[in-house]
Design a protein around this nucleic acid. Structure first.
Lengths: 235, 235
DNA sequence: GTCTATAAAGTGATAGAC
DNA sequence: GTCTATCACTTTATAGAC
């Protein structure tokens, strides 16, 4: 028998959505469950039960479980990466050839995540967790091609912008520092809830905006750190 | 019953022992497979086949699959956290009451990871990946109690040290910034291999020491960033 | 301690009726 | 599009012989 779900998710569920087609119901349940449990741990039986649809409908609408996972990941990650690139485009064309400020670049990178959460149908906490999982859980190789394509562009464009803002850095170093910055972002998305529990009352209940502001301050300083001196010069 | 904590600890920190008992063979195969595939994806069938032992032996030696996972996690994370605290103790008693430098604190935090890898029997790449997974994959609640205990101490002691080095920061802020620093470390451990693939020849093949040096520079600047100004003062 | 054999339950996927 | 029923297979775990 299928173990019953903790109904603890319920208080997180947003008001019923207008579109109650099976496909939408599946996608909505998938977001909630993937966020809580991870892609692997969620079985199609759990998922269809939670969504209130038939077991076979996932295969009908998404071809396979992996098809559903890919759909969720693409739907989460692509809009964010597109918004990042669009913002960077806009900022660069506005600056008419001058280097962007570090703050502006970081804003192009981080703000799309915050905006996406506001349009989401699930709770902020679940959205952040799922977004983090989408960005990290899969080894890059198994990501949908469309997702990989955009990632590749982000990994080219942002280091270029960074390097113009920080002329001391080599191209490689600016890429490494973007890598570190992504690490901060993803870790905050996934593990902040756990930290709040671990810390007990030592941390209050800060808003996501405030957390993101702290993240930006940290990353801005990290990106602008003095050029690393290495013994062997392989970077 | 806390089965294997001390044993796995010994297993990792002692020089490579050529022990081909089933238990050791299982642990060694588990490290390799968990690093590559993650804890969930590895079945006991794969694992025992890889180890060349009988399927039932995992349950005999570790009680259950979760028991094996806990043993691996404890063996990876506990030595690192113990070394962090020991280094911090030593540094603080040496400084005879004066605040430690940011660099010294970061060293206490990061170096134990590098030292653990040198004593490991699996490849550097796999070790890093597994260490990252051990630090992040499990939701904190499901971690072995002994692991959680040490994490809790790290999360108390290091922010205290940080705050003394950076008197401008509040206790909360120093904890947040440690959180961000952990994010950088874990992301680098798990995803650097993927980045190198995504970046193709744009990044060479830097040594782990050099990467860690860049990480430390980034984090040191991030930790020392000016105090974050927030609109609502809830942090 | 190690093995075989098997239990008990869960998994993704699909054929075919409606 | 949706449903039932079922297939073919995998999973963890354990009982009992050696």
């Amino acid at each position: 028998m299928i173990v019953c779900f903790k109904r603890t998710y319920d208080y997180l569920v947003t008001p019923p959505q207008q579109d109650d087609s099976a496909k939408s119901l599946i996608l909505e349940a998938a977001q909630r469950l993937f966020a809580c449990e991870g892609f692997e741990k969620v079985s199609l039986r759990m998922l269809t039960q939670e969504a209130g649809v038939n077991l076979a409908s996932v295969n009908y609408h998404f071809r396979s479980k992996q098809g559903l996972i890919d759909a969720v990941i693409s739907g989460y990650v692509n809009p964010v990466n597109e918004a990042r690139l669009a913002r960077l485009d806009a900022a660069e064309s506005e600056s008419s050839g001058n280097a962007l400020s570090l703050d502006a670049i970081l804003d192009c990178f981080m703000r799309p995540v915050l905006e996406a959460v506001h349009e989401s149908q699930i709770s902020e906490q679940l959205f952040f967790q799922l977004m983090g999982r989408c960005m990290t859980n899969q080894s890059l190789k198994t990501m949908p091609a469309a997702v990989l394509e955009l990632f590749r562009e982000v990994v080219v464009r942002f280091p270029l912008a960074l390097r113009r803002a920080l002329p001391d850095l080599s191209e490689k170093e600016s890429l490494w520092r973007l890598h570190f910055t992504v690490g901060v972002l993803i870790h905050v998305l996934i593990h902040t809830e756990g930290l709040l529990q671990l810390a007990g009352d030592r941390l209050g209940k800060p808003s996501l905006d405030n957390i993101l502001t702290m993240v930006k301050d940290y990353c801005q300083a990290g990106l602008a750190a003095p050029k690393t001196k290495l013994e062997t010069n392989d970077v």
